[in-house]
C-alpha cells in the first residue's frame, strides 16, 4: 500500500507543478500594473510599481518563489491589495467563515440525501419515489442565485415582517467577525450562517438525492439482494446492512470529491450575504488583480484536492474488500 501511495504521489508532482505554472500564466494575461498606476504616470512610475510588485523578476524566479512558499507552507508574500498583510494571514482569517458554511452544509446534505435516497429506493417505482425524482429534477433546473434571493427574502425579510420573528440576519455584519468560541456557535452562527447553510443544503439536495438514488437503485437490483431476501432478511436489514455498505463506495467518492471545495467556500453565498470567507476573498483578489492571493489560494486548494483523491483510494480499500491498493 505504501509503495502505491508513493507512486501516486510521485505522479502528482508534475500535475501540481503544472497547476502552479498554469495559474501564473493565466494571471499574467492582464497587466496588474495598469490598475495601480496613478494619473499621468510616467514610465518611471510604471517601472517602480513593477519592481515593487516583484514583477520585474524573471518568470522563473517568480515561479520558484511561489514553489518555495508552497513547500515551506509559509505564505509570507505580501498581498497587493491589502498592504501590510501577508497572504497567509488573509487565508487564516477567511477560512473560518467559509468552513462555518461548507462543513455543516456538507454534513446535512449528505445525511439527508442518503436517507431520502434510501427511502426512495424503498418505495422504488411508487408514488413517493416518482415525486422525489420529479422534485429533484425540477429543483435542479432553477438557478442557485434564485434560491439565494428568494431564501433571503422569505426566510429573513418576510418572516420578520409577518411573524416578527427576527431569526436570520438579512446579511452579514462585519461587527461580529471577531466573535469566537461558544458565543459564535450559539449566537453568531445561527443568525448569520444558518440561512446560507440551509440555502446551500436545499440546492445541493436535488443533485445529491438523485445521484444517491441512482446508486441505491443500482444496488437494489443486484443478485445478492435477492439472496438476502431468500434467506428471510427483513427489508430494513437489506437496505441498511446489505445495500448501504455496498453503496458506501460511490457515497465516499462523492463526499470526498467535495471535501476540497470546503475551503474554497461558496462564492455566490459569501458574496450575496457578504460573508468574509475564502470565496469572497478570492473574488476580491481576482477583481483587484492581487496575484499573490490568487496564486496561493489555488496552490492550497490543488494540494488539498490531490490529497483527497489519495484519501479516497485509501477509504475504498477500507470499505471494499475487493480493492487492493497496488
Amino acid at each position: 500500500m505504501w509503495t502505491y501511495l508513493i507512486r501516486r504521489l510521485a505522479w502528482n508532482v508534475p500535475v501540481y507543478l503544472g497547476i502552479l505554472l498554469f495559474i501564473m500564466i493565466v494571471l499574467r494575461v492582464r497587466d496588474p500594473v495598469f490598475a495601480r498606476l496613478p494619473k499621468n504616470a510616467t514610465e518611471q512610475d510604471k517601472a517602480d510599481i513593477r519592481a515593487e510588485l516583484g514583477l520585474d523578476q524573471p518568470f522563473v524566479a517568480q515561479y520558484r518563489d511561489l514553489l518555495r512558499q508552497v513547500c515551506t507552507l509559509s505564505f509570507d508574500q505580501e498581498s497587493w491589495s491589502h498592504p501590510g498583510q501577508t497572504v497567509g494571514q488573509i487565508m487564516k482569517r477567511s477560512i473560518g467563515p467559509s468552513l462555518a458554511i461548507t462543513v455543516p452544509a456538507l454534513v446535512f446534505t449528505t445525511v439527508l440525501s442518503v436517507t431520502v435516497a434510501l427511502c426512495s429506493a424503498w418505495f422504488r417505482g411508487r408514488l413517493p419515489d416518482r415525486l422525489l425524482v420529479l422534485t429533484s429534477v425540477l429543483g435542479m433546473s432553477i438557478s442557485f442565485l434564485v434560491y439565494i434571493i428568494l431564501g433571503q427574502y422569505f426566510a429573513a425579510f418576510r418572516m420578520r415582517e409577518i411573524t416578527g420573528i427576527d431569526l436570520f440576519a438579512i446579511s452579514y455584519d462585519p461587527e461580529v467577525s471577531g466573535v469566537g468560541g461558544m458565543e459564535f456557535v450559539t449566537t453568531v452562527w445561527p443568525r448569520y450562517y444558518l440561512l446560507p447553510v440551509l440555502t446551500s443544503v436545499v440546492v445541493a439536495m436535488g443533485y445529491d438525492t438523485r445521484f444517491y438514488r441512482a446508486v441505491m437503485v443500482e444496488e437494489s437490483s443486484r443478485d445478492y439482494i435477492i439472496t438476502a431476501r431468500a434467506k428471510g432478511a427483513p427489508q430494513w436489514r437489506i437496505m441498511f446492512v446489505h445495500m448501504l455498505k455496498n453503496a458506501m463506495i460511490p457515497i465516499i467518492t462523492r463526499v470526498a470529491t467535495t471535501l476540497p471545495f470546503l475551503i474554497t467556500g461558496s462564492f455566490l453565498l459569501e458574496r450575496y450575504f457578504g460573508i468574509p470567507g475564502m470565496g469572497n476573498q478570492l473574488l476580491l483578489a481576482v477583481e483587484s488583480l492581487d496575484f499573490p492571493v490568487v496564486q496561493a489560494f489555488t496552490a492550497v486548494f490543488a494540494a488539498l484536492y490531490i490529497a483527497t483523491i489519495l484519501l479516497t483510494d485509501i477509504l475504498y480499500a477500507l470499505v471494499d474488500p475487493r480493492v487492493r491498493l497496488s
Binding site: 445478492y224 455496498n246 471494499d320
Partner: peptide, 28 residues
C-alpha cells in the same frame, strides 16, 4: 403477509441461484 413469508424464506424453503459470482454480497 410479508412478515410470515419472511419466516418461511430461508428456513422452510430455501433457494440456490444461478450466478455464484454475484449472489454473494461482496462486502461481507
Amino acid at each position: 403477509k410479508e412478515r410470515r413469508m419472511r419466516r418461511i424464506r430461508g428456513d422452510r424453503i430455501a433457494m440456490i441461484f444461478q450466478e455464484p459470482m454475484t449472489a454473494l454480497n461482496p462486502v461481507y
